[in-house]
């Protein structure tokens, strides 16, 4: 608990806001102010009021409720995509570093370069062309794009650890590369991975919004922030609030995650440095 008091303010704010967004997203599973599936033409394009805190869209759906469900979509897609990237990328990076200079290392690095040549949007286009658009495709596309990111970060940090004498000491004790990777390397790069994960999380939210904006992400009727922005575009001259609130939701969430990521880097880094 006492460590929380020493956290920088930006980090605290970032973590707090992220927690709130996550809580709202989870809450939308059991409760939203209004249903988000029904169409109520009588209540269409209402300005903000006590009934509809942020107003309604062109189908009469409550904007706040849609934002809450949209948070769930964005968060779920981004978390799963980062998870996929970590789950595949970190082991790849660890083994590439353990086999530094060998064929596996070469293979991982060349594979990385190849995936890096595909912009995330292009991956999403290809996947959508094959399977049709859906939120799962967005997860896959963003996840695939995350794999080389984590593989590269992991490999770079792990290589630095591999040059340390304590790795040599462990090898003298007869420990194998896999065991050393798990026992000595992974724990010492974990804070870096947490930082990278937070940053990729924020990026994932941005990319998810972009994909659903162009129709490659979550499909209606499931609300998503990007989709809401796309729908609002034809109405911005007379209902600008429809475009403003979802955008703000994205900015606030991504800003919070980036602040948390930067804060964590500063917060965790000196400890790493001192420990070395």
């Amino acid at each position: 608990m006492s460590r929380i008091r020493h956290m920088p303010r930006a980090l605290l704010v970032g973590l707090a806001v992220t927690t709130v967004v996550l809580a709202v997203a989870l809450m939308s599973l059991v409760w939203t102010p209004h249903a988000v599936t029904g169409v109520d033409i009588a209540a269409r394009l209402q300005p903000p009021s006590t009934t509809y805190l942020l107003g309604t869209d062109h189908f009469g759906r409550d904007l706040l409720s849609m934002l809450m469900v949209g948070a769930r979509t964005s968060m779920a897609v981004a978390i799963l995509a980062v998870g996929l990237g970590m789950l595949v990328g970190v082991p790849l990076g660890l083994s590439a570093a353990a086999m530094h200079g060998g064929w596996l290392d070469d293979l991982v690095m060349r594979g990385n370069d190849l995936v890096f040549a595909f912009p995330v949007l292009v991956i999403a286009i290809l996947i959508t062309a094959v399977f049709g658009p859906s939120a799962v495709n967005a997860i896959l596309a963003i996840g695939i794009f995350n794999i080389p990111v984590f593989a590269r970060v992991t490999r770079g940090a792990a290589l630095a650890i591999w040059t340390q004498d304590y790795i040599r000491a462990a090898r003298v004790c007869g420990k194998g590369r896999a065991r050393i990777s798990m026992e000595h390397v992974l724990p010492n790069i974990s804070s870096l991975l947490i930082v990278q994960g937070t940053i990729q999380f924020g990026l994932g939210i941005l990319v998810e919004a972009g994909l659903s904006y162009v129709g490659l992400g979550a499909q209606p009727p499931l609300p998503s922030w990007g989709r809401m922005l796309a729908d609002s575009q034809t109405m911005i001259s007379f209902a600008p609030q429809l475009a403003i609130f979802p955008g703000l939701a994205i900015v606030i969430t991504v800003l919070a995650l980036n602040l948390a990521g930067d804060g964590l880097r500063d917060f965790l880094d000196p400890r790493i440095r001192r420990a070395r």
Partner: peptide, 20 residues
Amino acid sequence: FGSFNPRHSVARLVAEPFHA
């Protein structure tokens, strides 16, 4: 400075050679 895993206790560090 580089000869020890910073995340292990000294006792664990000293005991590592028993692995052999």
